[in-house]
Design a protein around this nucleic acid. Structure first.
Lengths: 217, 217
DNA sequence: GTCTATATTGAGATAGAC
DNA sequence: GTCTATCTCAATATAGAC
């Protein structure tokens, strides 16, 4: 499996080529800077062919982002299925997630959606639902499971705990990267994840190996 | 004091008008969608006047973002000077910071810089230095101070602690907002901040009221 | 569906008078 | 410095042949 977001290769090959070329260009330099000429050239087809498949630039962009959202959703599922169930393996999960999030492909679509979210609000919502919201929902279920097994404080709101874990994971690294910083090395990611998980467990781990929750206050 | 980022009103009034109009437009609909015609119209001057003050669209954009960065830096200083020194008032600090971060004006420049960070990498760096990096540096100093006073775990890296507090504060609310979600109500911000600070203190607060740090492990 | 060639609009930038 | 009027070029989108 590759972390790269593979576009759907079905349907007409020309259509797929257009989608793929458009994705490369849009994610690379943004929506407005890409001309339909460039898309056609990059896809190796004529401009008229592009317009035969997509009614205009907007529609092409929407189709591309939709395509990427589907790919992201698939990735999220895959990531979830790989997640180990052992408690200490929260680190493993965090590493997978952060590698995925900080991958240049993810960052590119992330930036593009943010850039166009005022002009294409529906797209931004679709992206949020397909990506972050899905991962978050999965993590919340996971937190509830951890709680049932007594490995997580019983008095914690699972949704809040999930948000906090994600916030700790993202931290400064995410902000620097989304603002155009260099793609972080895996080692840097791992270090950040380790610190984040350690702190998360300090705050959210069950107070003792016994399952009795803290009653003090 | 207003949370809005006021542009510099000095120098020639026309220049100020151009900067102000450009800021409104660029932050509103993005860099590429704004024409120099529109800037001139919005500013109430002729296009030639715009070109008399700025060598081109790029230079105008850079000047505007630079202006906003200065305003943000000033805001950061102001925010720091208002920060209470008492320990329990971390919440107050978090609220101020999050209100500032999630303010539509901040969000607008945030999105614009992210959108253009591949085309204007220097601008993105300047923004990061003027905004997030400055706040982060201030918070790190603050963490060291807290440590010296025994209110923060002695074994914590102040920089990591600062990043974690910021990550907890941003959480899901920031992500949703930067992706075009509705500007959060103050009450929602406050609730998120309270939870974040509570968790931060659970993980980073000194283990006891005594100043003796944990020696275990 | 696909191509070549073209229509049409609107962008950034400038010349020259005041 | 400021304006009006204009130049130039590239972009989106389409017409019509195959």
């Amino acid at each position: 499996m590759s972390l790269a977001l593979a576009p759907a290769a079905d349907l007409s090959p020309k259509r797929a080529a257009i989608l793929s070329a458009g994705a490369r260009l849009f994610m690379g330099v943004g929506y407005a800077s890409v001309s339909m000429d460039a898309v056609a050239r990059e896809a190796g087809v004529s401009k008229a062919t592009v317009y035969a498949h997509f009614s205009g630039k907007d529609a092409l962009f929407a189709a591309i982002v939709g395509d990427r959202c589907a790919a992201i959703a698939a990735q999220a599922e895959e990531l979830a299925s790989h997640a180990p169930s052992a408690h200490g393996a929260l680190r493993e999960l965090g590493r997978l997630w952060m590698r995925f999030l900080l991958h240049p492909d993810s960052m590119a679509i992330h930036r593009t959606v943010i850039a166009e979210c005022t002009r294409f609000p529906d797209l931004a919502r679709a992206f949020y639902e397909a990506g972050p919201a899905r991962g978050r929902a999965w993590l919340i279920r996971r937190m509830m499971e951890e709680q049932r097994q007594g490995r997580l404080r019983a008095d914690a709101d699972p949704a809040v705990a999930a948000d906090h874990l994600l916030g700790l994971l993202r931290g400064e690294l995410y902000l620097r990267t989304v603002l155009g910083g260099p793609p972080p090395e895996n080692a840097a990611i791992d270090a950040v994840v380790d610190q984040a998980v350690e702190v998360f467990l300090r705050a959210y781990g069950a107070p003792a190996t016994l399952s009795a929750p803290e009653t003090g206050r």
